[in-house]
Write a protein that binds this DNA or RNA. Structure first.
Length: 422
RNA sequence: GGAGAGAUGCUGGAGUGGCCGAACAGGCACGCUUGGAAAGCGUGAGUGCCCCAAAAGGGUACCGGGGGUUCGAAUCCCUCUCUCUCCGCCA
């Protein structure tokens, strides 16, 4: 959520940058400012009323102390009207605040200077491409390889739970576990702090990271206990810092954590969601960073090269996209997507998305730090996948297939305990 | 799941209707003292919002969350959440 005072201070610049998303936000921005004006004037009026009734109450107290009961009674009778208008103003204030909030909820983050304008994924900028596409003597899609070597059983998942909840078996399970451990170890090596978060979160956490109130449709909800299954580890790991005031020297804070993720993905069907391409439950290793505003963009670049390093070590071909305004997530100011080449499907698969949210999340989270002047300032938050498991598994299976079997990347062999799947 | 006790500032902990934004202690910051440190002494610190061009200043709200009683609530009532103790159950 943007801060109204920031919008007010720099309205034209905000509007210009928002327009890079391909949608005009002028009217929402104006509404926000008008509502903020209204809020201020109501607040001010209410304060006057309260000040007056506070002073009368004080006088009544003194009169009682002096045993002047009659005079006190006279004053008491004067309070009725004040109470009435106080109550009305309070209601008006609450209503205005709520309206303002609802308007602000609809305004996405302001794209950073470097973000290209554009409406959809076709306007994304291919930032760089790394590696050669493999020349395969056979090219089975991963779902066929899963069946051939009995690695992942989608049908069995349907039986136990439903579509999108696969069962990982034998070397399929071990490959995935190896990847998780390797990702975590690499993260720790790079200076991240490991977190094992809860996978259910309460309502406040959902609001903190922006899934609620608008996007509850994408989360699984347990009504009895009013808990939500996390769509990404970002939710619990970032909410660690909800309502927290950090010290400036604590920054940056760098966390890494593995968790299963749950997404309802209502309405997604078809070829592109086949096999591991889109699931209701999948595993992910996530990195979350909290940064001083001055160096969040440096951290974003570092995250991007960290993720690329993982892909390089696995020997996968990838490209990096700088997302255009229209494709950049609602809360993000700037996002890089990493995509690996799927040799058998002949398409790019998104395996990571690293974003700088600047203060957009921190504002909702009330995540601040005390700067050198002792003033409280919103922290910048960043996060990214490092990495999402299913599509990495899919591309390893597809890109490293040979007639003899699937050759396991060198770095994973100590973790797997085998070097070929056959 | 049953029974009971609680939730106050950075922390501990007073406060049962007006004199309470909140005693006292610790911690923290600054100063004095010291060759340096410790101890000691002194001083100063809450947060949001509103008014004010800004600073100064003022107003208002905040004692777990929400609601109520009252001229007036940290204090009384209702409700929710959380924590602790005992019993039961259990990986």
């Amino acid at each position: 959520m943007l801060q109204v005072q920031d919008i007010r201070a720099d309205k034209e610049n905000y509007l210009a940058r928002l327009s890079k998303r391909g949608v005009d936000f002028t009217s929402l921005v104006n509404q926000a400012i008008e509502l903020d004006d209204k809020r201020k004037s109501v607040q001010s009026e209410l304060d006057k009323i309260l000040a007056e009734s506070n002073s009368i109450s004080k006088q009544i107290g003194q009169l009682y102390a002096q045993c002047k009961k009659d005079e006190a009674e006279v004053l008491k009778s004067k309070t009725g009207a004040l109470k009435e208008s106080g109550k009305n103003l309070e209601e008006a204030l609450k209503a205005t605040e709520q309206e303002l909030l609802e308007v602000l909820y609809q305004i996405p983050n302001v794209p950073s200077e470097a973000v290209p304008a554009g409406k959809s994924e076709t306007d994304n900028l291919v930032y760089l491409e790394h590696g050669e596409k493999p020349k395969l003597t056979q090219s089975l899609p991963h779902w066929e390889l899963c069946e051939k070597y009995d690695l992942i059983d989608f049908e069995l998942g349907v039986k136990i739970t439903g579509a999108g909840f696969p069962v990982y078996k034998g070397k399929g399970a071990r490959l995935q576990r190896a990847l998780i451990n390797w990702f975590l170890d690499k993260g720790i090596e790079a200076g991240f702090h490991e977190i094992q978060p809860p996978i259910f979160v309460n309502e406040s956490s959902g609001i903190g990271t922006g899934q609620l109130p608008d996007k509850e449709g994408q989360m699984y909800h347990m009504e009895v206990d009013n808990l939500y299954a996390i769509p990404t580890g970002e939710v619990p790991i970032t909410n660690i810092y909800r309502d927290v005031i950090l010290k400036e020297e604590d920054l940056p804070i760098r966390n890494v954590g593995h968790s299963p993720c749950f997404r309802r993905e209502a309405g997604s069907y078809g070829k592109h969601v086949r096999g591991l391409n889109r699931l209701h439950q999948f595993d992910k290793v996530e990195i979350v960073q909290l940064s001083h505003p001055d160096n969040s963009y440096q951290l974003l670049e570092e995250m991007s090269s960290y993720v690329q390093g993982l892909l390089k070590e696995l020997g996968l071909q990838y490209r990096v996209l700088l997302l255009c305004g229209g494709d950049t997530g609602f809360a993000s100011a700037m996002t890089y997507d990493m995509e690996v080449w799927s040799a058998a499907q002949e398409r790019w698969l998104e395996v990571s998305s690293v974003s700088n949210f600047e203060t957009f999340q921190a504002n909702r989270l009330k995540l601040r730090f005390k700067n050198k002047d002792g003033k409280k300032q919103l922290t910048h938050t960043l996060n990214g996948s490092a990495l999402a498991l299913p599509r990495i598994v899919a591309s390893i299976l597809e890109n490293f297939q040979t007639p003899e079997g699937i050759v396991v990347p060198q770095v994973l062999r100590p973790y797997c305990g085998f070097d070929i799947i056959n």
